[in-house]
Design a protein around this nucleic acid. Structure first.
Lengths: 135, 135
DNA sequence: ATTTACAGTATCCTTTTTGATAGTATGTGC
DNA sequence: GCACATACTATCAAAAAGGATACTGTAAAT
């Protein structure tokens, strides 16, 4: 992650948690990973189209950090115009449970107008439905 | 989250993912939630001790945002010296799967010296062991 | 009267992150 | 020779996040 907003190895307890989010807390990282998980392989432009508001600068930036952290793989084809494909690395694949959990939670708890609509008495544990369709 | 670095409802696909991390991407939020998940209820000072390097300003800040987002509950006792207890709200409880996934991943993939030590051929899906002990 | 505990507040300042905008490189097709 | 497509890079500026330090209020204990 280069700049490491979440420094690894501070104290003990929640550190593994901190380390994990530290790798995916860029503004676009988790979403990029999610799309790569769904689609397998995507070109730069394809990712950009998925994240409708990202500038090339930011996209490059996030992709580079993900690559540095070993979560994605970058494959450059020696062509012109350029062709670069991104995909999850083996390590990136190990994040699937996290990405799925995030996606499921968001699906369950975020209304279309932005605010989590929880507060209803049906307590913990989200329904294990909703896996990939609406994405 | 008040300031919303991750604006909810931009485009479509990974938005639920974005919405979800948007709620836990403060520097300390996920760790706070994790500790509350483990311990059930914690006082301000107790949380501060868990996150050895947090300043009271930041802690207050993160707790307030978590409260605004409905993830935690703040209970003030009318005493002196003050006593304030924090705990996960019902909505906060629905995040357990995410917190567990983050924790499991971190446990599995982060060495004690900071870098994810992946890149080994044993592909996807982390071992479903390691649940709460080392935390 | 003074100190102590607890849960914050208030200010000021630095670092990080993000955005906007424009420009680069190059083989191919026209 | 010129425009086109793709994947960026460079610069500048603004905004957001985080950190350091010091201070507040109050009942009970000393």
């Amino acid at each position: 992650m280069a700049k490491a907003r979440h420094s690894r190895f501070d104290c003990s307890p929640g550190c593994s948690v901190e380390a994990a989010i530290g790798l995916i807390d860029g503004k676009w990282k988790s979403v990029i990973l999610f799309h790569l998980m769904k689609d397998g392989t995507l070109r730069f432009n394809a990712i950009q189209r998925h994240l409708c508001k990202v500038t090339p600068r930011m996209l490059t930036n996030q992709l580079r950090e993900l690559e540095e952290d070993g979560l994605i793989t970058r494959k450059v084809y020696a062509q012109v115009p350029p062709k670069v494909e991104y995909s999850l690395s083996p390590l990136g694949n190990t994040m699937k449970p996290i990405l799925l959990a995030l996606h499921a939670w968001g699906d369950e708890n975020i209304g279309l107008y932005g605010k989590p609509h929880g507060h209803d008495p049906r307590d913990a544990s989200a329904d294990p439905e909703a896996q990939l369709q609406p994405a």
